[in-house]
């Protein structure tokens, strides 16, 4: 039997918002370590990797490893039935072909349960090599979302250039060119509002704006976001999920032919 009870149910609602624009379906791999999900978007240009650790749940039981194929559109509809204050429990019997979501109101005076059919997904998983990135940039997630939204008006690609002075985001197209430069924060009083850059070597890469905008659907999960870059390898955009885990997006760069 599998059962995972999350007191802060709103986190799972936000995770859904972070996944459903990029992915139509995905396998939720459950083990005694926690819940993991890895899936590429339909165009195989970006990858989402979610990790929710068992110890972040109020109650977590996984008798046997379980992979639950879910249609994320359907799952999103069910999670919309949960209030932000609800406690959410996910449970399934071993070898089940359905999963049940239970939503409990804080004072237990309303308990809802929704059963959803599972899908057989034989999704391939990709090996993501450990990488010592040339540049990592931590910045407010709202700032990054704003940058992606503003610059994607100018072109379908965005150049992210990182030097020791700071990071520059640029886009150019028919209406013109936009450049946004963020300097490294001088003093870091409020951790989550700082721009912190660790640079081993300068990097400048080009990415498709539409995927970056899809990634920023995870903004509500964390006040800050971390970008990791190295020449000619996929960008990593990581949002922490409280103290339970993270969602990471990988995006292949656009490379000059």
């Amino acid at each position: 039997m599998f059962e995972a009870r999350l007191l802060q149910g709103s986190l799972l609602k936000k995770v859904m918002e972070a996944l459903k624009e990029l992915l139509n379906e995905a396998a939720w791999d459950c083990s005694d370590a926690g819940i993991q999900l890895q899936a590429m978007d339909n165009s195989h240009v970006s990858l989402v990797s979610l990790n929710l650790r068992a110890e972040g749940f109020d109650k977590y039981r996984c008798d046997r490893n379980l992979s639950m194929g879910m249609n994320l559109g359907s799952m999103s509809k069910i999670l919309k039935c949960a209030s932000n204050e609800d406690i959410i429990t996910i449970k399934a019997q071993d070898n089940a072909d359905t999963v049940t979501f239970v939503f409990e109101s804080p004072d237990q005076d309303k308990v809802s349960d929704y059963e959803m059919k599972l899908m057989n997904l034989d999704q391939e998983h990709l090996g993501i090599p450990e990488t010592d990135y040339a540049c990592t940039i931590r910045l407010p997630s709202s700032e990054f979302a704003r940058i992606c939204r503003d610059l994607s008006q100018f072109g379908e690609s965005m150049v992210i250039s990182c030097t020791k002075e700071g990071v520059r985001f640029s886009a150019t197209g028919d209406i013109g060119t936009g450049n946004i430069k963020l300097a490294q924060s001088a003093k870091v009083d409020k951790e989550e509002e700082a721009v912190v850059i660790e640079m081993q070597e300068p990097v400048s890469l080009t990415f498709a704006c539409r995927y970056l905008n899809s990634f920023t659907k995870a903004t509500s999960l964390s006040k800050s976001v971390q970008l990791s870059m190295s020449p000619e390898v996929p960008l990593v955009v990581e949002y922490k999920i409280e103290d339970i885990g993270h969602v990471r997006y990988y995006l292949a760069p656009k490379i000059e032919d």
């Binding site: 240009v45 993501i128 760069p253 490379i255």
Partner: peptide, 14 residues
């Protein structure tokens, strides 16, 4: 002209 590469150019299936 910069072209979009698929992720599978960089990450191999397990």
């Amino acid at each position: 002209m910069s072209s979009q590469k698929p992720l599978t150019n960089f990450f191999k299936p397990l």
